[in-house]
């Protein structure tokens, strides 16, 4: 049985720069590595930008971008600007 894909969302700034304005994607993957790989295949070079410049929120929980992060079927993944503080 096919698993339900994850809903993957980029920021307006990111989509404006790298995907021609496309913000939302549906991707089937087991880990964040799979998500990044799929996006990089769609937009070559995007993967590196995601790895270097974003933090990821998976179902609202904020994580550093790491290949190992598990991706639950049907989850929501937002790539957001990396967080820095004082």
């Amino acid at each position: 049985m096919a698993q339900s894909p994850a809903r993957v969302v980029l920021t307006s700034g990111f989509s404006g720069c790298y995907t021609g304005g496309v913000k939302e994607f549906e991707i089937e993957a087991k880990t964040l590595r799979g998500v990044i790989k799929a996006l990089d295949e769609l937009y070559p070079g995007l993967g590196e930008h995601l790895e270097e410049e974003t933090t990821v929120a998976i179902d609202g929980e904020i994580h550093e971008v790491g290949y190992h992060q598990p991706v639950r079927p049907g989850c929501e993944i937002f790539f957001i600007p990396k967080i820095e503080g004082g």
């Binding site: 179902d59 609202g60 929980e61 937002f78 957001i80």
Partner: peptide, 14 residues
């Protein structure tokens, strides 16, 4: 609350 959307996209998880 948990599930409230944020202006930057994801929903609050805490």
């Amino acid at each position: 609350k948990v599930g409230t959307p944020t202006v930057w996209g994801p929903k609050h998880a805490h």
